[in-house]
């Protein structure tokens, strides 16, 4: 595994998070190395999104440590330090989360203009460049997000995530809601972007095709714990029943879906 010898970019140690009586994260341990692409797989409601939101500082974990480039981030609050940490991040949201009151190029350039104080002209040029990287032409620059298809919105979201040249990009269900071909296009773009930008990536998905394509390393989250983690090419020989059931998508197995009769 690349980056294992150097300091990990992200390091989660025994992270716990509960919402009321519901324990969502039960001691998550995870590391992402430099230039490594880690994918967290797991069913719905296993705490994938919560893990991501804890790292991004959108949620505060109850206990445990989260380090970014060796710096503890669970205790820095919401001020300037958080902005400084988040400046290292790029995030592609599940629904793209584009600002619908802003034009496409303003969306892509948002982090540059608001976060870094770059001039609008310069930011627009940078936005054009980043949009070309994800295969979007100048014709969509001045449109509004609502006028674009789901796949195009995802691409704009991706362009926005890489616009500020982040060290780490997070992908929240990058292929959900897309047709198989567009999914593959997005997967290719992710692989390409991570390679071109030269950053690390942490993705969460339940789409195994996507996970296999974009991951160096896969970790499986189940009941708030990482139950298996290993190189992507060894996922078929994990020797873990839960993982086997998940990657083959079987209803029968150790993972019992909570299906209740009403």
């Amino acid at each position: 595994m690349s980056g294992a010898a150097t300091q990990p970019v992200i390091e989660l140690t025994e992270v716990y998070k509960a919402f009321g009586p519901k324990k969502v994260l039960n001691g998550v341990n995870l590391t992402v190395g430099e230039r490594e692409s880690v994918v967290i797989i797991g069913g719905s409601g296993t705490g994938k999104s919560v893990t991501l939101k804890c790292i991004l500082g959108l949620l505060q974990p109850d206990s445990g440590s989260i380090k970014v480039d060796g710096e503890e981030v669970t205790t820095i609050g919401q001020g300037r330090d958080r902005d400084r940490i988040n400046a290292k991040f790029g995030m592609l949201f599940q629904g793209a989360a584009l600002f619908d009151s802003l034009r496409v190029w303003e969306n892509v350039a948002f982090g540059l203009i608001q976060g870094r104080g770059m001039g609008r002209e310069e930011a627009r040029e940078k936005a054009i460049e980043k949009m070309a990287q994800v295969g979007l032409g100048r014709d969509v620059l001045d449109r509004f997000p609502a006028e674009l298809s789901g796949g195009m919105q995802k691409r704009v979201g991706l362009a926005r995530a890489i616009a500020a040249d982040p060290e780490i990009i997070f992908f929240d269900e990058p292929t959900t809601g897309l047709d198989p071909i567009m999914s593959d296009v997005i997967n290719d773009l992710i692989v390409e972007c991570v390679k071109v930008v030269g950053c690390s990536a942490l993705s969460i998905t339940h789409d195994m095709a996507s996970a296999r394509k974009i991951a160096n390393r896969i970790a499986m989250l189940y009941q708030g714990k990482i139950i298996w983690a290993g190189p992507a090419d060894q996922i078929d020989r994990s020797g873990n029943d839960h993982v086997d059931q998940f990657i083959h998508g079987r209803a029968e197995g150790p993972i019992q879906m909570q299906v209740r009769a009403l």
């Binding site: 939101k53 959108l58 400046a87 989360a97 608001q114």
Partner: peptide
């Protein structure tokens, strides 16, 4: 709507404080 569609979270990840913005 911005909260539900994660646009407010997106602001934070783009180093922009939602309260300020």
């Amino acid at each position: 709507t911005m909260r539900v569609t994660e646009q407010i979270d997106a602001l934070t990840t783009l180093s922009t404080n939602p309260f300020k913005y």
